[in-house]
Amino acid sequence: MDVDALKKEVTTSQLWRSVMRHDLEDNPRTRVLKVMSNLFMHLHPVRIPRFGLYLKHTWCMGGITFFLFLVLTVTGTLLMFYYHPVKEAAYADIKYLEFDVPFGMLLRNMHRWAAHAMVISVWLHMYRVFMTGSYKPPREFNWVVGVLLLTLTMLLSFTGYLLTDDQLGFWAVTVGTNMARATPLLGHEGPFGDKLGMTPYNDIRFAMLGGSQVAGNALLRAYIWHCIALPLIVAVFISIHFWRVRKDGGISAPQ
């Protein structure tokens, strides 16, 4: 059998060519085409400043943050198959994941550790952008987008904390949301809150929790923020962030 002939037959077929727009030989032309003619690759420019490759310049922390976001999306979607955001079921669902679902424990662990890792990597990414002075013109606005992403990342992690419905998550979220009581004007224990008629049943904390306590409604709200709203918002801002990295001339470098 003639392998080369077969290869040629396949790669010149209508089916193959409808998917692959160019040949795969390694030459300058295909290197460009590989980036240009693929949706995922074309998030990149064709060429980048050499500095983008230096680990001591980027620490790779932005990329790692993005990759962790993808890992979290995949593992999170799988977890959603086994999880009901209601008081009667949530805790038992976690136990079920741990003891009955094949690789359930591994799945849960991956999601949790990737979440912690993402909080760390986003801090470190900010740290490196600061230390290399990469927020300076023309990248000021991308730094602002970044700070929003940092805040959103921590909120994502925080809303996920409650979902296990165990003592750890319950009290961590109780301690966290109790702060909202003290919001000036809008919290019932905050400065001037009582002047505006704030009570535990109508203040900003009530709006966050859907109740005066961390209970069933809070679980559902945390779930919706955690699994739908925040990931969508983060995805939009990450798109803006990446787009701006390109529009600002790629990774910073000394001029």
């Binding site: 805790y91 662990n109 999601h111 165990d166 003592q167 961590a172």
Partner: peptide
């Protein structure tokens, strides 16, 4: 994830306050 399991404590109970009660580490 193989070496270390994610923590899971008792079922949430508003009547049992752990001491100290801590927010998430970050």
């Amino acid at each position: 994830s193989i070496a270390l399991d994610a923590p899971l404590e008792e079922l949430a109970n508003p009547n049992v306050t752990p001491n100290p009660s801590k927010a998430p580490w970050y």
